[in-house]
Amino acid sequence: MTAAARRRVLCLAGSLRAVSANRSVLEAARELAPASLELVLYDGLAALPWFNPDDERDPLPGAVTGLREQVAASDALLIACPEYAHGVPGAFKNLLDWLVGCPRFPGKPVALLNASARGSHHAQDALREILRTMSAELLDRVSGTVPLPGTGCDRAYVLAQLEPRGELEALLKRLARALESA
């Protein structure tokens, strides 16, 4: 498969931690992705200003323009988001709020990756509701859990553990098939 035929997947980690299970699983995913996928890790969560509808005029804040350009240039999104207080962390909800007005977001295929061994289903349920409201194309058959112990879990750990690595590889293969058939 040529590089031009590769599908670009923007990976969004919902945690601001320097070493988070969610970011680590996405970093590992870049190494394990099938040749048909190009996974790009978004690195600007902390730089986004707090959402204010008054700021949705031209020109948008630079960090928001960068986020929207990356979303527009992607064939799909892969989201790994932690759960805080039974919900989506504020910084990640802020990112989603900035995407509400993004004209290239509706219909965007989105797969959810749950990196919690304990399930953290409240945040996943909330994300699904938010993304449905935003008119994302949720890839529920692709989405899944890669059970990780939580904090202190880095990319090397994910790659070295058979169960999480196998779950991640299976999820990425499902994602590749879903994007090939789209």
Rank of each mutant, 00 (worst) to 15 (best):
L45W: 04
S15D: 05
L41K: 00
V9S: 14
A28E: 03
E27L: 05
C11N: 09
L39R: 04
E38L: 13
D54S: 11
G14D: 10
S20R: 00
W50T: 13
P49D: 06
R23W: 02
Y42M: 03
V25H: 05
D54G: 13
V40M: 03
A35M: 10
S36W: 00
P49V: 08
L16T: 11
V19I: 10
A29H: 04
V9C: 14
V40G: 03
S20P: 14
L37V: 10
L45T: 02
E31T: 15
A18G: 12
E31Q: 13
L48A: 11
V9Y: 14
R23T: 07
L16I: 10
V40F: 01
D54M: 07
A28G: 12
A13M: 08
G14R: 05
L37M: 08
P49F: 07
D54C: 09
C11T: 12
L48C: 10
L10G: 11
V25S: 07
E31C: 14
V9L: 14
L26N: 02
A46D: 01
L10H: 13
V40Y: 05
A46E: 01
A35T: 11
F51T: 03
F51K: 06
L37G: 08
V19F: 01
L26E: 00
V25W: 04
L10R: 08
V19A: 00
R30T: 13
P49R: 02
A46R: 01
R23C: 09
R6C: 15
L37E: 07
S36A: 12
W50P: 12
L41G: 01
A29R: 05
S24Q: 04
D54E: 13
N22E: 09
P53G: 15
L41C: 00
L12T: 11
G14A: 09
S15G: 05
W50N: 13
V19S: 02
R6M: 15
A18H: 11
E31A: 15
L32M: 06
P49E: 07
L32D: 08
A21W: 02
L41T: 04
L32F: 10
F51L: 06
E38H: 13
E27A: 08
A28P: 12
A13S: 15
A21I: 03
R17V: 10
V9F: 15
A28W: 05
S15N: 09
E38K: 12
L32S: 10
A47H: 06
A29T: 06
R30Y: 03
D54K: 09
S24Y: 01
G44W: 03
A21K: 00
R8L: 14
A46K: 00
A47Y: 03
V19E: 10
R7L: 15
A21Y: 06
L26G: 01
E31K: 13
L48K: 03
L41S: 01
L26I: 06
L16D: 02
G14K: 08
V40K: 05
C11W: 05
L26T: 03
R8N: 15
V40Q: 02
L12N: 11
N52V: 11
A33R: 01
N22Q: 08
A18D: 14
R8Y: 14
R6A: 15
E31I: 11
L48N: 01
L48M: 06
P53R: 14
N22K: 03
V25T: 12
A33P: 11
E38S: 13
L12H: 08
R17M: 05
F51A: 07
D54A: 07
L12K: 04
A29Y: 03
L10A: 11
A29C: 09
L12C: 13
